[in-house]
């Protein structure tokens, strides 16, 4: 063979400039996305004097847990100085029933719309689609009035009802899409076996809805936890969720700003959805894809 190199086996791989650039971009992007989290964490462990002299990117010279204690139990929201712990409890009280009820309603709707083709089904579907896309501002004022009429405004059940109402479009679309992929023959077979509306739902459809229930739960837990607007307007002073409390703590005008306390409170607020995100992993991505409501 005159060829000095005789190609045989796998082609030798070289690290090309393109490949290096690719990793450089990814590492740079990762740094950009991680930076705020890093700043949040280091700030929350610094003392205020250090924050005022030092720079936001440096590690704390001596670790202090005081900001966390203050954020949890002593930070002031206006006149109340009970920390963010009240908000945590409120957020759970709002999130758990809202998640459960909105998923239940969405599942029933999705099931009824996909298999039973009820009268007016298309109208429901159209309104829900619209509801998923239209800014909430349009509904707010009349909804406040309606809830006051039935004495639900500024109550815990009131804010739960609001979450169920506005969670319904996405939940319904989610389950409708999921059930649309279930073979109709399965439904027909269940009908021939004598199953009624509820029997088929609880015995056939729900048991095979595991994946979508997980996705729905992820969407609702993070979505309701992260809500600010509804909590602000509908929850009432005694049930303000954590996001609203957090904003009140940070934007309280009394005294000097305690940035370390603010950041500790911010991390605490972000904690629940972040845990959901890291634990659920690929399911979260599935939730996004499903939430993207592809027809």
């Amino acid at each position: 063979m005159s060829d000095p190199i005789h190609p045989r086996g796998a082609k030798p791989r070289h690290l090309t400039p393109g490949r290096i650039g690719l990793y450089a971009f990814l590492v740079f992007a990762a740094a950009f996305f991680l930076l705020p989290f890093y700043v949040m964490v280091v700030t929350s462990f610094k003392t205020m004097p250090e924050i005022q002299q030092g720079n936001i990117f440096s590690l704390p010279s001596k670790l202090t847990l005081a900001p966390w204690v203050t954020a949890w139990a002593k930070a002031c929201t206006g006149v109340n100085c009970e920390g963010i712990r009240v908000g945590v409890l409120n957020s759970f009280k709002i999130m758990i029933p809202s998640t459960f009820l909105s998923i239940l309603l969405g599942a029933i709707n999705g099931y009824a719309l996909s298999f039973w083709r009820p009268r007016g089904g298309n109208l429901i579907f159209a309104v829900l689609l619209m509801g998923a896309f239209i800014p909430y501002q349009v509904y707010l004022y009349p909804l406040v009035r309606m809830l006051s009429m039935v004495s639900l405004y500024n109550t815990l059940p009131g804010i739960i009802v609001v979450h169920v109402i506005f969670g319904m479009p996405v939940m319904t679309l989610l389950f409708r899409n999921y059930y649309a992929a279930v073979p109709v023959d399965l439904f027909k077979a269940a009908r021939i076996d004598g199953g009624g509306f509820w029997t088929i739902f609880t015995r056939v459809m729900l048991p095979m809805s595991g994946p979508i229930l997980v996705v729905a739960a992820i969407l609702q837990v993070t979505g309701i936890w992260n809500d600010f607007l509804f909590g602000l307007i509908f929850a009432g002073r005694d049930h303000l969720p954590m996001t609203v409390e957090l904003n009140n703590i940070v934007n309280t005008t009394t005294g000097t700003k305690a940035y370390n306390v603010n950041m500790a409170a911010t991390i605490l607020t972000a904690m629940v959805p972040l845990i959901v995100y890291f634990v659920s992993g690929r399911w979260f991505v599935r939730g996004i894809a499903a939430g993207a409501v592809k027809g």
């Binding site: 060829d3 005789h6 190609p7 045989r8 086996g9 796998a10 082609k11």
Partner: peptide, 16 residues
């Protein structure tokens, strides 16, 4: 990618 061996097409070693 092949792990070992060669591929020739028209009397030309095209493995890589």
């Amino acid at each position: 990618d092949v792990s070992d061996g060669e591929v020739w097409i028209n009397e030309r070693n095209v493995t890589w």
